[in-house]
Design a protein around this nucleic acid. Structure first.
Length: 562
DNA sequence: GCCGTTTTCGGCCCGACTGTTTTCAGTCG
């Protein structure tokens, strides 16, 4: 068994479920679940941390779990876990993946003869489970859960979710009882992929708003309460809505933005100060007095801290920074002064160089780089002539550049002379993704150390929802970039968002400087810049960390190298 | 089982919804 973080998290959740069924200590159960969450969200592989004897850097992993994980990785199993799970049928654990099915329901289902999720779905569709005394409502709920599970495996790209959410917001704003609508949850935190869409409405008439919301065109009702509801759009996207009185709306915004880990940390902290936080307000525990918060700032100020930007709320140090008033002044879209990665019809872009230049002018950029692929077929001379012509017709500085492939055998697919004659070159891996960590790292280092390569484009090669990142020793790469002055790109293309935010933060800590580029193949793609900025913000970047926030003169000073 | 600028012992986030409960259990975010 390959003990990936995901597999370990799953095992810990199974142990938690078994503990719960045995009537174990509920805090111990929570401890296992917390550890599972922490491992699943950890940016380092547990196996790597284990090798370095650093397992305890993961919050929620203490002395005992370190011991168990050591046993797991060394021997492949944990005797204690097996004894806890002993007596429970193995078939029940996969059923826990179904939302709405917890340990007790899963056990009851297996006792009713269910052997798998597929079996469960079939038995409900054939009404066999119903004939065993399971109510129609419960069966329907389980079926909905199975549908949700299938959908979860298909998360949406941030940009896709954003477009849908904006449409629903516009619909809600038409209702007279709606004072204000906000997009919350992972979408507000600008996570690269989004599961469900969370919305909040400020209103004195929650019932009217909910009644209106559940009638959203092309949707079906999933769940409805007095001030909450969930609908499913015809494309399968779930929309959760919560309505709150304007006087308490800040508490709701705070609560529904999350993340879960951020909220738990915040609420624990509130307890130490004699407060109890909920989506309704901040309660003084001694007197039961509820202090209503109309804004998010009110909530955080009561806890004597600054308000962390939503993108930072992942419980990765932002709460401490907010308390110490050392939150970074995060980069903004308006800081961006140029785009240094785009394609034209000279390579695989869909619009002419002239059209791309015009579109960039409209965005108000001071400088851009034309980085067509360095295909052997590219007529460099003719492209150069067109760039010269374009330069005469614009105030923008146009850098003549190339995107160079780093070949599978570790060479750059353009000659040194060609590269030297360019103003600005980016290099990237486009083939040979499955090579070993050592080989892939070496390939990147070749480009990083090359005097005419200014930046590494889409460094991990991941394609969201399609392809994992390739395996690279990032620390070595980041140190080499910092040393040589090679920039790392944050590629803003919605299915890339590469570097990923967690690596951005790690690279920043090692002194790397960044570029945020769109990799546009069409003028409309230039607008993806906002998603790249979101990644930077999630990686705690300030404008000074990103070279294309500089004015032209300063930019020229930062771009190496030769 | 974890964790600690009040604690190495004694706490552990909080409320909402569903189903069928006549006061609550299970599950979720």
């Amino acid at each position: 068994m390959d003990w990936t973080n995901k597999a370990i998290a799953r095992l810990l959740r199974e142990v938690a479920a078994a503990h719960l069924l045995k009537g174990g200590n509920r805090f111990q159960i929570v401890a296992y679940e917390n550890a599972a969450d922490a491992i699943e969200h950890s940016t380092s592989e547990v196996k790597d941390l284990w090798e370095q004897k650093l397992l305890n850097v993961i919050p929620g992993i203490g002395e005992k779990l370190t011991e168990y994980l050591d046993e797991l990785i060394t021997t492949g199993h944990v005797k204690h876990f097996e004894s806890v799970k002993h007596g429970f049928p193995e078939e029940m654990f996969p059923l826990l993946d179904i939302p709405g099915v917890g340990p007790k329901t899963a056990l009851k289902l297996v006792e009713a003869g269910i052997s798998s999720i597929i079996d469960l779905e079939r038995r409900i569709q054939q009404e066999k489970l119903q004939s065993q005394g399971w109510s129609n409502k419960v069966c329907a709920k389980i079926l909905r859960g199975i549908q949700t599970l299938k959908r979860r495996e298909n998360r949406m790209l941030l940009s896709f979710a954003n477009d849908i959410a904006v449409g629903i917001v516009e619909y809600l704003q038409k209702h007279s009882a709606v004072n204000r609508v906000d997009i919350l949850g992972s979408l507000r935190r600008r996570v690269a992929t989004v599961g469900d869409i969370d919305l909040a409405v400020a209103s004195e008439k929650p019932k009217a708003v909910i009644d209106y919301f559940v009638k959203t065109p092309h949707s079906t009702l999933e769940e409805q309460g007095e001030k909450t509801a969930t609908i499913i759009l015809s494309n399968g996207v779930h929309i959760d809505l919560m309505v709150e009185d304007p006087r308490s709306y800040g508490s709701l915004l705070q609560y529904l933005t999350g993340s879960k880990q951020h909220n738990i940390h915040l609420r624990t902290l509130a307890g130490d100060k004699g407060y109890s936080i909920s989506e309704l307000g901040v309660k003084k525990v001694k007197t039961n007095e509820v202090i209503k918060c109309s804004t998010e700032d009110d909530v955080y100020h009561l806890l004597k801290m600054e308000t962390p930007p939503p993108e930072m709320r992942e419980d990765t140090g932002e709460i401490g920074a907010a308390q110490n008033r050392t939150l970074p002044n995060l980069l903004r879209l308006s800081d961006i002064k140029g785009d240094l990665h785009m394609h034209t019809t000279w390579s695989d872009g869909r619009e002419s160089l002239t059209a791309m230049v015009k579109a960039c002018e409209q965005l108000g950029y001071g400088y851009i780089a034309m980085t067509d692929h360095a295909y052997p077929s590219l007529d460099l001379h003719a492209r150069h002539e067109e760039i010269e012509k374009a330069r005469k017709e614009t105030k923008m500085h146009i850098l003549e550049g190339l995107e160079v492939n780093i070949t599978a055998d570790g060479k750059l697919q353009a000659s040194n002379d060609v590269l030297k004659n360019m103003d600005f070159n980016i290099a990237a891996i486009h083939t040979g993704f499955d090579q070993s960590r050592e080989t892939l790292t070496k390939r990147l280092l070749v480009a990083i150390h090359h005097p005419s390569i200014h930046a590494i484009a889409h460094p991990t090669g991941r394609l969201l929802l399609e392809r994992e990142s390739y395996d690279v020793d990032w620390e070595t790469v980041f140190r080499a970039c910092a040393k040589t002055g090679t920039l790392l790109e944050i590629n803003a293309y919605p299915n890339r968002l590469d570097l990923p935010d967690t690596l951005v933060r790690q690279a920043k800590d090692l002194g790397v400087l960044f570029l945020i580029n769109t990799d546009a193949h069409h003028s409309s793609h230039l607008l993806h810049m906002e998603y790249g900025v979101s990644v930077g913000r999630r990686g705690w970047l300030e404008a000074k960390d990103v070279v294309n926030t500089l004015n032209w003169a300063a930019f020229c000073g930062k771009v190496k190298k030769q």
